[in-house]
């Protein structure tokens, strides 16, 4: 298990990390997710040994590795640029790490061949990095790390340099390789979709702090605060302001329904597009009216952009294909369950 306790790091007056605490289980696919500048890369570089924290400890399997040099750590880093050695061919790149250990040449060849098999790099042995495609370069970089059999593989935005279709393919491949090797993966990304698809557990970071650590499912269904709700997936927000609750019909509606219990509070309500239902069936216990502004087609489903009488501003509602031909400006009744609202 990797235990990160009380890690802080500043660069000059900029506080990059503020008292970070995390526990990552062995064999887990863990993701550090956050906007750029949130400190996720700094944390990754501290785990890999390229930065030293100002205070705090990194404990790997009961062993303190906070001050261990990168070349002595049982961790390997997959660089965003892949950082392949341009003057070495694929085989030399992959065996470079093993040649630094006291391992016989036969053993090195065996392990390198095995890893090339597993990452489908056979036939590319003698190519130089410049002669490889983006996907191949990434697989070489991955093989170069995995051949060292690290306890933890750190991935710095591994998919950001690939084009869209290759990205989807590599996502599946990465997940497969991780399950195959049972290595702990810690991936830094700013792409919530990557994190949701790949990770077993996600830590959402902002401004050098960890906001929420949960499985993708829980993170999506119960975001802890406004930041996480806004960052993960799509959510509609309404502001409930106590100061004008006497005059505002929307506020009255929210109070009457019991979503807002304290009428003097000031809060933001959020609801996911897929939690808003369009129906004539009145079993749903919260209703509002909306006027359609725009219909966006996404293949099988439709996204309706509408203006509600609640004061949401423009809201996004998911609808099935029966709404494909709905007219602009037509009024719709929207129903949802009061439990779908989150209060911050």
């Amino acid at each position: 298990m990797l235990r990160i306790s009380n890690i802080s790091k500043s660069f000059g007056i900029v506080k990059a990390l503020d008292n970070i605490n995390l526990e990552i289980d062995n064999g887990e696919f863990f993701s550090l997710l956050g906007p750029s500048g949130c400190g996720k890369t700094t944390l990754l570089r501290i785990i890999s040994g390229f930065e030293l924290p100002d205070n705090g400890e990194i404990i790997l399997n009961e062993q303190n590795i906070t001050n261990t040099k990168p070349y002595n750590r049982p961790t390997n880093l997959l660089f965003q640029s892949y950082a392949l050695f341009p003057h070495l061919n694929v085989i030399q790149n992959i065996s470079y790490g093993l040649q630094r250990e006291k391992i016989s040449k036969i053993e090195i060849d065996k392990r390198v061949n095995a890893i090339m098999e597993k990452t489908s790099l056979n036939g590319l042995q003698d190519r130089k990095p410049i002669e490889l495609s983006g996907g191949q370069m990434q697989r070489v970089a991955l093989a170069r790390c995995l051949v060292k059999e690290p306890k933890i593989l750190l991935l710095d935005e591994p998919l950001s340099a690939l084009d869209k279709s290759l990205k989807e393919k590599m996502k599946i491949e990465l997940k497969k390789i991780q399950k195959d090797f049972k290595t702990t993966f810690i991936m830094v990304t700013h792409d919530q979709d990557e994190a949701l698809v790949l990770a077993d557990k996600i830590a959402v970071m902002d401004n050098g702090e960890i906001i929420q650590v949960d499985s993708p499912k829980i993170l999506y269904s119960s975001p802890k605060n406004y930041f996480v709700a806004n960052f993960i997936g799509k959510m509609n927000f309404i502001e409930f302001n106590a100061s004008n609750n006497e005059t505002n019909t929307a506020n009255k509606k929210l109070l009457n329904s019991g979503i807002i219990k304290d009428k003097n509070s000031k809060s933001i309500l959020g609801i996911r597009p897929e939690d808003i239902y369009l129906t004539i069936n009145e079993t749903l216990n919260f209703e509002f009216e909306a006027e359609i502004i725009h219909v966006a087609y996404h293949g099988q489903e439709v996204e309706l952009i509408a203006k509600s009488d609640l004061g949401f501003g423009e809201i996004s509602i998911k609808a099935d294909k029966s709404f494909h031909n709905v007219e602009k400006n037509s009024k719709i009744s929207c129903f949802c369950n009061i439990n779908s609202f989150k209060i911050y």
């Binding site: 390229f50 990168p70 961790t75 965003q80 950082a83 050695f85 341009p86 630094r100 060292k148």
Partner: peptide
């Protein structure tokens, strides 16, 4: 690419 130097350290050199 300066990260190749770091990659070398990372791989044990």
């Amino acid at each position: 690419d300066h990260s190749i130097i770091e990659a070398s350290y990372d791989l044990g050199a």
